[in-house]
Structure formats: C-alpha cells, structure tokens
Amino acid sequence: MTVSQEQPGWKTGNQTPLLVVDQLVTRFATPDGSVSAVNGVSFHVNKGETIGIVGESGSGKSQVLMSIMGLLPHNGTSTGSVKFDDREILGMSREQLNKIRGTRMAMIFQDPMTALNPYLTVGQQLTEVLTFHQGTNPAMAREQAREVLEQVHIPEPGKRLDMYPHELSGGMRQRVMIAMGMLCRPDLLIADEPTTALDVTIQAEILDLLAEQQAVTGTSIILVTHDLGVVAGLCDRVMVMYGGRIVEQGPVRDIFYDPQHPYTRALLLSMPRLDDDLSGDLPTIAGQPPNLAQMPPGCAFAPRCAFVSEQCRQAVPPLREIAPGRAKACTLDRLVA
C-alpha cells in the first residue's frame, strides 16, 4: 500500500489537522540544472502536537520548512499542497502570507547570534511584531513584550528590552527568539534546529522552555533537527528524512526502540550512549549523503545500505504502512535490530 494521502489511522481523535502537507516537491534552478531538495513529502500536524523531522545535512528537512513558510530563495519553486487550517498556503501571495506569518505561524531559527538584528534593541524587535500585526500602541506593545520575556524566564525583562542582541548570551538570545515566536500566540511554531548553536546545558533549558510554552499555549510545534536526543525528549511523532524523502515515520518511542528502516537504525547506532563501552570507535554510516543533482534511480540510501538488494537500486521504494501510525520506505519486510 502506498502512503501518499492522509491516513485515517494517524489522526489522534477526530480533530482536523492544523497543517496538512501533501506531495510537496521543492526544486531549485541552479546553473547545473534543476535540483530537487524535497521529493514528494506528505505529513500532517495535529493541534497541540509536536512533530520531529530528523535527517542529516542535505536531507531536505530545512527546505520542507522553508517551503511551508514561503521563504524559498528566488530560484526555488514548490509544487504539491500545503494546507494550513484548511487553507492552501502554497503559492499564496506575499501580502496574504504576511498575515499568517508571525501571527498564526512563527519560526525559530538555528543561530540566535544571527537571527536578531544587531542594530535594534530586543524591545524594538519584539514590539515591531506586535505593532505590525496587531496595531498595538507602543506602550502596550512594550508591556506585552516585557511579559513574554518574563514567560521565557529572562531575568530583569524590563532591562533586557533596552539591550542590543550582542549584550545577551546565546541562550538568552534563543529565549528572545522563542519569545518573539510566542508573542502573537501562534497556532504553529516551526523550530529549525533551535539548539544546534547552543551548548548542551543550554540546549536542555531551551527544550524545556519549548515544552513548557507548548503546555501553556497549546501550540503545535514542528521541530527540525539532526539531534536524535532532542527529538526523543520533545516530540510525539518523528519523520526521518533522507535524500528529500521521508524514509520512516511513526510515534517517537517506536522509532527509537524499533527502527524499521536501515537508515534510521544506522542513525540511532551512531549516537553515543552513556552506558556504551567507549573504548572502540563510534559506529558511523559509511559513504556520503546523496548528491541532490544526481539522485540514484532507486532508493537514495541504497549505496550506503547494509541490506541493499537489486530491487532497491531499480525503483524508489514507496512509503508503506507497516503498523497503525507507522510507515517506512524500504523493500525489507522486517528489520531485526
């Protein structure tokens, strides 16, 4: 069975999903020809749910987000469908999109060092979002900005409002970014590797903060990362991407305890554990991620896969349901760990 449309088994309860992505294809026109970064990705996000998208660099995970947010560079085009709250937002005009972005859909960026304007104070950047979208008067906006900084546990929020980004630490800046994202109480928060640029202890704090904000506001979160630990702690469901396609998806526990795609398994194996014997080398995945301009005809992971068969090299294995709520794109019937 091919999974290209929404599966009923995936819906928790009978609520309609907040975001439905169907057969999303994102291509970039480059001097060397057209490169497709996303090749037919379909998924949905329910209200109040946290979805993780995992994959290594170049797997197309960030481009999925950029396509959703309408932030693709000039040479990028998306086809397929992205429905937010039952409205098609793919190919929406900028003016219309600007009414959604920031208010109903917000994004947190990877590097808080560069995602804040160095020439504006924290307060100016926060209030800008409010005055722009809701026409809040400056004094009110400032008060709201102060409140939201307090919510993300920034000490002395009134004082921080007048500081410039460079006067804050990395973790503090990421908190400001999260505050900015939460300011208009969006329905969907998209976080593109929000902890990659931070050190480990701060990472944990930021993840706790995201979980806490979600508990308070009931927002849905799409979390993109290459750090499996981050996913395990925060997400309800996980999608593993490779070569611009989803290779495996399912509830976070199932993915971690019973990975069914060779790539997911290899990814999990290459993650060091506290109880590991550290005398040997860490297991790695041999080979290179695929070149998006020259994709193999079959499974993108075939050249690096330990279980590869002739069938894998001939056609892309479709994403098929293997259990309720679980799907994988692999020719193998059962992968025994």
């Binding site: 994004m107 960026f109 804040l116 979002v129």
Partner: peptide, 13 residues
Amino acid sequence: REFIEAAHAFGAS
C-alpha cells in the same frame, strides 16, 4: 542574513 529571513518569517513587509 538570518535576521532578514527571520523578519520575513514574522510577516514583515
């Protein structure tokens, strides 16, 4: 730069 992208993502014209 990312902060320009962030401004887009927050819906600035």
